[in-house]
Design a binder for these strands. Structure first.
Lengths: 192, 192, 192, 192
DNA sequence: AATGAATGAGCATTCATTCAT
DNA sequence: CATGAATGAATGCTCATTCAT
């Protein structure tokens, strides 16, 4: 019984590592299985096929990040403080879970990712709604520039994505101080 | 002679279209050859292997963009005007050449891209030097925030990348007015 | 005990259905087990392996058909009446048990089937002896053509096999009248 | 150029042998390739996939048989002589090409075969029309019993199929004399 | 130079069978 | 006895690359 979850977890871990580090190309099922310490066929007891494994793993990570952000998120706090919370929590999460960040990037840059984004747009589903709610509230309060949502989103979080990438590749060394400065600059970008 | 360049050009065009639209997965050499109107083996007369083709094509595009930006770039103009020029030229280029944008994205999100960025860091080569020079000048003049270069870079151009992506996927409709507003916001992000 | 036989029976039923309808390809052990309402491993308590299951199931069916024919078979009746009995009993059985017919066909058209027929020839075993006795008696009595047994057999029952197949696939609609006519024609084929 | 046809021919030959002798199960693509003296991937230059190879090979054989029968077939001859021609030509062809016979049997006893027969019924296509025309003509002339076509067909050619099978498996030794007797008996079966 | 047929390693997936519980 | 998770060999198919013409 504990075995059950262990195996699934191990497969997730193996897939995460390989895909994050080598891309989808560098992660054949046999290699995932080997690294997970299971037989190749075993993966198919837990996931219908490779696509399902990839999508499930993404949602796993996505949910985890959503949970981390929601934890300690206080709706009552002022807008800027809430932005600070989300931004720094996200930044620290990625710094502490570089594989998760790399995986998400790989995922979004693949047929799966585009499909997924299209779904979000249509069904208005997904976890982005916190970000969106925050930004929309700011627009209404005339604290944040009146621009289309995708543009505000890009201004608020686009730089973070690039910087985390550079951090992971060793081009910058992110720390709490730098994250704060980055956050402040992004706030300058979106505030009126 | 013209034949020579035509073939190479056709191979480039075919590879660009297929990779930009379908990703590396959807662009087997045989398909590239077919779309280019040449035999599969012919590609290997012009490029050592698939990797070389991909890298060369990236540099081709990268150089073209660099040229477009340098054209009409006036070193004598004030900092903000130069930033405006670079930003809007880049934005319009991507809007007008979505395949180039998609290709660059695919490239950066692949083993090739990481390798490439590592090279840039080591050899201090690449075309980024205009961007960097501009930003460094701004820092010295105390017009731009005193932050590490990768962070300034991310603030200045990170949002553009995200927005162009959304534009191509149909989530926003970029036009000159919106590009100007985006530019202004990015400037707010980096300026003191 | 009744449990024991139930399980075995269920496995037989599941295998029969799947193999008759989908062929050997469409009947993995796991699927047979699922349809039988037992675990995959359980099958191996009742049958050594898949081959044994297939062969045993064939004999089960074959025996049942033999029994149905022997029931009401009256050795004392005239030759033609006995032929009539066998022929129509067989035809009706197949019409009423299309899965049995399909299974037998699948079986005979497989490595198992050839092996089986070879056994029959060598060991002179099997249930065919009634058919053979009948035909041989007819030859002796000079009622039936003096031809090698396999040829008489083919003339007597070959058409039935083809017609039942067509009936099951929906190409003809067999009924008692048509079965009688078919039988009569086959009798014409073998009688002097 | 001759190479091209050789390869295709070799693949056909290898597939024919393996499938006829071992069934579809015993004929993996790799084994077909090896026996054909080509690489595994080469098969896919000539056939889209395994299914296409199987279906194409069937049509190849089917066409060949149709051609052999049509050659020397004289529409002007009396019914019974034409039946004699078709029957014995068919019989001799199968005796001389046992692999073709086995292949056709395997094919008809597979999803492909059922699909194929369904096509024939619907489109009234295929080469069976000669047989059918002959039988229908006989019915009109009141030389042949007035029975549904599938039944006449089964009476006329069903025994042949069974006997050829037995011949190939070594249970009878067909020769011209025996073929003639078999034909005569089948004629007895269908004639009034 | 150009061709494109041929190659064969590599991949995702299936499934009969085993064995610890 | 029964279970069903785990196994891993086997299969159909793809595709970057080579080389004889």
């Amino acid at each position: 019984m504990s075995n059950c979850c262990d195996k699934r977890e191990e497969i997730f871990r193996a897939a995460l590592e390989l895909i994050a580090e080598q891309g989808f190309h560098g992660a054949p099922m046999a290699m995932i299985a080997e690294r997970a310490g299971v037989a190749a066929g075993t993966i198919y007891r837990y996931f219908e096929n490779k696509d399902a494994l990839i999508v499930d793993l993404f949602h796993e990570i996505d949910d985890k990040i959503g949970a981390v952000i929601m934890q300690d998120y206080q709706q009552a706090k002022p807008l800027r403080e809430r932005f600070h919370h989300i931004f720094t929590t996200l930044a620290r999460y990625f710094v502490n879970h570089p594989l998760h960040f790399r995986y998400i990037e790989q995922f979004h840059n693949s047929p799966y990712g585009v499909e997924f984004k299209r779904d979000i747009l249509q069904r208005k589903t997904g976890d982005c709604h916190i970000y969106r709610d925050l930004l929309e509230e700011g627009v209404v309060q005339q604290v944040i520039k009146d621009l289309p949502m995708p543009i505000l989103f890009a201004l608020a979080f686009g730089p973070l994505k690039v910087v985390v990438r550079d951090h992971i590749l060793g081009f910058v060394a992110l720390n709490d101080e730098l994250i704060d400065k980055l956050m402040a600059a992004c706030w300058d970008g979106i505030r009126r």
